[in-house]
Design a protein around this nucleic acid. Sequence first.
DNA 1: TAGTGGTCTAGACCACATA
DNA 2: ATGTGGTCTAGACCACTAA
Lengths: 242, 242
Amino acid sequence: MFQRSPSLVEQVKSYLKRQILQGNFDNGRIPAEVELARNLNVSRNTVRDALSRLEIEGVIIRRQGAGTFINKAGLMVKSQLSEIVPYQALIEEYGCTPAIELISVEELPSPATAEKLHRHADEPFLLVKKRFLADNQPVIFSSTYLPTRIIRRAYTPDDLRRPVFEFIPEFCEQDFSYFLTELVPLIPPDWLVSALKLPPQKSALVSFEEIGYNQNNEPALMAISYFRNDLLRLRLIRQNSS
Amino acid sequence: MFQRSPSLVEQVKSYLKRQILQGNFDNGRIPAEVELARNLNVSRNTVRDALSRLEIEGVIIRRQGAGTFINKAGLMVKSQLSEIVPYQALIEEYGCTPAIELISVEELPSPATAEKLHRHADEPFLLVKKRFLADNQPVIFSSTYLPTRIIRRAYTPDDLRRPVFEFIPEFCEQDFSYFLTELVPLIPPDWLVSALKLPPQKSALVSFEEIGYNQNNEPALMAISYFRNDLLRLRLIRQNSS
DNA sequence: TAGTGGTCTAGACCACATA
DNA sequence: ATGTGGTCTAGACCACTAA
């Protein structure tokens, strides 16, 4: 039924999610774990791992002694903030057609960025500005600062259109590990109002200020992303952990 | 070494976190999983579950073939947005002394809230307003709407000062399951500026608009919380999930 | 090549919900 | 009393890192 890679757990998870989205389970009830394990020919632990991930995503609810059930409210949550998702895929989750525009690419020093990334103050950075559209409406604007020195291979503008956490492994001879993200609200400055085509009456935006770390836990890049909150609602599930 | 409840995994996790915070591991390296399992007299799976949770929290980094290491950068992340944490505990995480003020308690109808919670438009709600201080500075303001009808026991103002997800199991004969939260930036209105003693030059705030669900996955309450972002930075770790 | 984390299994027992 | 999810174990094998 399943192959070796990606992991069995991941395959079972996406299989179950597909079944859920297609409405293949009656009464919003998911079969018992032992039954799923038998049918899919995997161990119960594997099924449980897959279900645990779906529970964290908010897709299902488990009740000891009662069973496992689909969570319709949770299906509204499109973005797991704790996961790294390409903005393109995020826009698709909202049922929109995504598009990426490469606004500008410059090389310049940035002492403020240098300090955050533990680099020399006069070191040059590649500043890449991008805009993401959903159904032709601008919804995200991102600025990425990449130390020029870590780039080891030649790249084209098309390469820069890709998510930076994919660019790094391919062009910088290092792996990407995680983002440390700070959530910052702001009143958009004029340049952002026009870049995102915001309505004239000023309202607030959310931005992510992120530092990306490589496999050695060294800071490798800085990025700021601005979200048009009226079109792209950021939702999340909050649960009791213990 | 360990007891039966809470779960072994939880005990191992908090034990390891304590060791990490106390600096009991040299070179930022955590012993091998098999060694931890042997020393703590639990199975390797139990150790792995505990380590996985610490990894999600950003406290450690695991590298296949190399080992498990402390993540100093990740220790800056105080709030797991995907977890429900009492605001009081959150403020303590930032190293501040917390205080809770019960601002007001009213009973009133709220058609907008009623619609979100699938209740009759003219049904009364208990509106509880609270303010949270960190080192005597106001940092969070929260408004909670609770359908009056679900309250089954008499309560005192002191009971209302507690987190609402603790109030519900105790006074409403239902369990609390999770919050569905929407992240909304806003320019603070005047009443909020004075409630949080914000500086005169206007800046933006983040708010959480949350709907709380009970064990039957029915909406039970609505809450809005406003965070003073200059004092309480919201940080999170974003990782590759697969 | 030795040691580490990553994955998966089979099975045991417990706690809880439902009837 | 039955069936469900919750926890834990012991052990196998794989994939990767580093010396």
